[in-house]
């Protein structure tokens, strides 16, 4: 399995290189320039100087190769320096944001924490409520519990998060005043009072995310479970006299979770994408917000780097899904 994983990773390299080139070119071809935001009153010579300072006057291919070198060699070197206090980077030029002039990876590092807390909490809560609901709906399918569950899941799945987000803000923040209406990024948890504030401000965005994903995951779990409950081996388990919890939770659930886990792993990158909207609605200053800000300001290095990171995540989680599948299902062996 290890060799399988390594081979898959090696095979991923050319794929990722191609993706990076395409992303780079597409973003570059898009209309607009980093200078379009600068007032017209600035003289053309000064304008030209600023463009040169950003390196934006270089041909696209040169900028691509430079970016590749920075992304794959220089940035990892700085990352290691940051961890172990070494100086591998040796003062080489990092990928700089055109907008803030700060290294792109520093910005990402600052933003990632916020995103992970909110999205991570939303996703974990979604799984925790969705799996039991899915299992029970399948076990008692067409019962009132299942009918209600189906209805709620349908709503949760079909109503977009920006709508539920705004709805929750209007009800719980504006009218009832129970929760803050936006997320205070500068808050750091030092004691119980700030911890409580943190939980309070996370409540609404996490709820929105959890509802949306729970709807989806519970549907997957239900249909997978329903499939398995009708299988012959479940009948065998009952014929052995096993008690229902064991029949359902040991025999059927174990098999049902195989596709669910795979879907969860495959969906991991897209929740980053999906969270962009939730971050906008609740003013969470995370990765999504960084991406939107960069697009608006034509900050090409930032957009290219973030987009490419999403691409890497997709490739990595595809591999993770494959490996998980192999670990959970003994019928699958990777040579």
């Amino acid at each position: 399995m290890l060799t399988y994983a390594l081979r898959r990773l090696l095979l991923a390299i050319p794929t990722l290189l191609l993706i990076s080139l395409i992303i780079f070119l597409m973003v570059d071809l898009a209309p607009g320039s980093p200078m379009s935001e600068i007032p017209r009153s600035i003289p053309p010579e000064a304008r030209q100087k600023m463009i040169e300072a950003l390196g934006a006057d270089q041909p696209v291919l040169v900028r691509y190769l430079l970016w590749l070198r920075q992304f794959f060699l220089i940035e990892p070197a700085y990352l290691i320096d940051g961890w172990f206090g070494t100086s591998l980077g040796g003062g080489a030029q990092r990928i700089l944001s055109w907008q803030s002039r700060a290294p792109v990876f520093d910005v990402i590092g600052q933003r990632l924490g916020q995103t992970m807390t909110v999205i991570g909490a939303g996703y974990v809560i979604a799984v925790l409520i969705a799996v039991p609901i899915g299992v029970y709906s399948a076990y008692r399918h067409y019962s009132w519990f299942d009918q209600v569950g189906t209805f709620i899941a349908m709503i949760g799945y079909s109503v977009p998060t920006f709508f539920t987000g705004v709805l929750l803000i209007v009800i719980f923040a504006v009218n009832l005043g129970w929760f803050p209406s936006y997320y205070d990024t500068s808050l750091t948890v030092t004691d119980f009072a700030t911890f409580k504030r943190q939980v309070w401000q996370m409540a609404l965005p996490v709820t929105v995310l959890a509802l949306f994903h729970a709807a989806e995951i519970s549907r997957y779990t239900r249909s997978s479970m329903l499939d398995n409950l009708g299988q012959d081996y479940v009948r065998t388990a009952r014929a052995k006299g096993l008690l229902e919890p064991q029949v359902v939770l040991k025999h059927a659930l174990r098999n049902s979770l195989i596709p669910v886990v795979t879907v969860l792993a495959l969906g991991m990158p897209s929740i980053f994408g999906g969270s962009i909207i939730v971050e906008q609605v609740f003013k969470v200053n995370g990765i999504g917000a960084a991406l939107i800000g960069a697009i608006v300001a034509n900050d090409l290095p930032m957009v290219q780097t973030l987009t490419f990171i999403f691409a890497v995540l997709i490739v990595v989680f595809n591999l993770v899904a494959d490996l998980l599948y192999g670990m959970l299902d003994p019928r699958i062996r990777y040579e």
Partner: peptide, 24 residues
Amino acid sequence: LSDIRGARIGFVFQDPMTSLNPVL
């Protein structure tokens, strides 16, 4: 009734390919 199944009455089904749990 489940105390009787498997203890006093045993069952063998038609299709041995699907009657055993694949992941146990």
